[in-house]
Nucleic acid binder design. Structure first.
Lengths: 115, 115
DNA sequence: TCTATATATAAGTATTTGATTATATACTTA
DNA sequence: TAAGTATATAATCAAATACTTATATATAGA
């Protein structure tokens, strides 16, 4: 019983993208909620350009989409992607990223006041 | 609802392995049936050492196992692997490799007589 | 319009990867 | 035991990758 079957070339490309720990973690976080770049920066031990470059690759592949909100650019999973089903299936095997999401909420880099 | 959840480092490692078109195709073929190296050689446009090296990586990661049968070494999916569920979920999105399996049966490189 | 902040892009570099060629090992059969 | 076949390993190299630093762009607010 096959699910949405896609060209093997595109699949291997997506798997290669998710084959990087940072990118897999980002995508897994975005499954829980959208994040802006400065929030992601809080939880990874790498430079801002490095995160930007990972996001660029994910965006180029159609895995995520970006939306500017004032000075921040928020990234989220692209629900329109025809590979979404594959990605979601993979993410079911990935531990949830609540610790990282929590860290973002504590440091609150965008100084949002949600009260 | 999470499935068998595994360390994100191990998952990204497996995804990186499957992020190569040749390896993803091999694994997808092995889902249908075990193959020996000379059979795989029939369907890929690359050298014997190249295939051997891909198989080595898959074996090192525990994705496949090898079994010598006389002069041939047969590779199959390692059903004992704790990442098997993830791999099977991924393979459901990959087109089946009947064309390649058929080609093996036609060229029949091991000259097996199954009659 | 000036300054600060958020993010992207460019350029450079070290590491990793996947291929190739050459060689070694293991098995089969004469 | 010698020769042939199947497969693995070693060495080498070019291409791809992911990081860094430096710089550019876009927005916000004084």
């Amino acid at each position: 019983m096959q699910k949405t079957v896609v060209d093997i070339e595109r699949i291997s490309h997506v798997l290669k993208l998710l084959g990087d720990k940072t990118r897999l973690t980002i995508v897994s976080m975005l499954k829980q909620r959208e994040c802006c770049v400065c929030e992601l920066l809080e939880v990874f031990d790498t430079s801002q350009p490095s995160i930007s470059q990972h996001l660029r690759k994910l965006k180029d592949a159609g895995l995520v989409r970006e939306e500017r909100k004032g000075q921040w650019i928020y990234y989220s999973l692209n629900k329109q992607n025809d590979l979404l089903a594959l990605i979601e299936d993979i993410l079911e095997h990935v531990p949830n990223q609540m610790d990282k999401i929590k860290k973002i909420q504590e440091t609150n880099p965008t100084m949002r006041c949600d009260c």
